[in-house]
Amino acid sequence: MLVGGPFFGAAAVALAFLALPVVAIFTRVPPGRLARLLSNPVVTDALVVSFKTTAIAQALILLFGTPLAYLLASRRFPGRTLLVTVVELPLVLPPAVAGLGLLAAFGRFGLLGSTDRALGIDVAFTQTAVVLAVAFVASPLYIRTAIAAFEGVDADLVAASRTLGAGSTRTFFRVVLPLARNGLAAGEALAFARGLGEFGATIMFAGSLQGVTQTLPLAIYAAFSLDFDVALAMGALLVVVSAVLLVTLRLILSWQPSRRTSRSLVAPSS
């Protein structure tokens, strides 16, 4: 036998440790009261703010992140590794540092603060600030996965498309994008989940106001000292949403018209 009792014991510890906090949330929220707790205006407002800001952030991430990921995946140039590092850095940055950085860059007295004022833009304490915070912390997850997906696209197919007379734009939309589709969707699901859970950068950069900037995680933090049951109910809600996202991700990955794309997903881009 390759592994013995202690091995299984250690595995059981790891499993129980990861499952227990999630299970505990549900054991402390009576399902009968869940519906009533979730109809609390604090909760519904937070839900609306969370989904609205996350959706806008995701649209921006797709719009700006996809071209960046494609260029980083298809070109080889000096300093590329440095650029990839810059793109991936927010992923490992502590959220509090992300919040400080956003304040230093886009705050009223930040680097772009005077430019913003000249343009009559003031993002302080607005939903725009929440969107910026979410986009900053979540986009690296998408871009990173998208780079891997684009790198997994068979270069011969791209070359064939070009030989057959398709321009580079046409090739991108008709060949590359459909082949990388699964990888991009997976990256998007990851970024969505990360964006929905964003806390630290948001509370520092955008503040917290019910119905405006108070997202679900911020509302949970506020409810913790006011009404523990409401906090638990919102926690349960986020657990369910996150689980649905994760299952969606698994489904996307197991669906495979383009085998090479999905396989290369897990490996970080070189």
């Binding site: 304040l103 705050g107 302080a124 304490f125 917290s208 106001l209 019910q210 405006v212 506020a222």
Partner: peptide, 21 residues
């Protein structure tokens, strides 16, 4: 005119000292 409700007094202080509020 309230744009943010902070979780302690020092966070109010920080946001004003920073010029954000």
């Amino acid at each position: 005119n309230v744009v943010s409700q902070e979780s302690d007094v020092r966070e109010v202080l920080a946001k004003v000292a920073l010029g954000q509020a």
